[in-house]
C-alpha cells in the first residue's frame, strides 16, 4: 500500500472541506499513514468470495404511507441559523452552480 503524502492529505482536506493548517498536513500525513498501514489488513480477504455486509439488519421494504406530518414552524427551522433574511437561511456567496 502506498504511503499517505502531505499532498494527499491536502486533497482529502479539500474533499472534506477542512481548511487544514500547514502543521496539520504533516501531522495528519504521519498519523493517517500509520492508521492506513494498520487497517489495510482487511484487504487480506479482498480476493475471497465473500459478499459484503453494509448493514447488520436483515430488514427490507421499510416504508411509510404518504401522509403529511406537521412540519416545524419557519421560526423553529431558522432558530439556530447563524444568519437569516426574508425567512430564509442567509449564506455567503455561492461559487458556481453544480
Amino acid at each position: 500500500m502506498p504511503g499517505i503524502t502531505r499532498e494527499e492529505v491536502a486533497h482529502l482536506g479539500r474533499l472534506s472541506r477542512l481548511e487544514l493548517k500547514d502543521e496539520e498536513l504533516d501531522h495528519f500525513a504521519e498519523q493517517l499513514d500509520a492508521i492506513i498501514g494498520a487497517v489495510a489488513r482487511v484487504s487480506e480477504v479482498a480476493g475471497e468470495d465473500v459478499p459484503p455486509t453494509s448493514h447488520p439488519l436483515p430488514l427490507t421494504n421499510v416504508m411509510r404511507p404518504d401522509q403529511v406530518r406537521p412540519s416545524l414552524t419557519p421560526e423553529q427551522a431558522l432558530s439556530s441559523a447563524p444568519a437569516q433574511e426574508q425567512q430564509r437561511f442567509k449564506v455567503p456567496q455561492i461559487l458556481g452552480e453544480d
Binding site: 487497517v39 482487511v42 484487504s43 487480506e44 480477504v45 479482498a46 475471497e48 465473500v50 459478499p51 459484503p52 455486509t53 453494509s54 447488520p56
Partner: peptide
Amino acid sequence: GSAQKVRTL
C-alpha cells in the same frame, strides 16, 4: 469494500 467483507466473516 474489503471491510464489508470482513463484516460478513
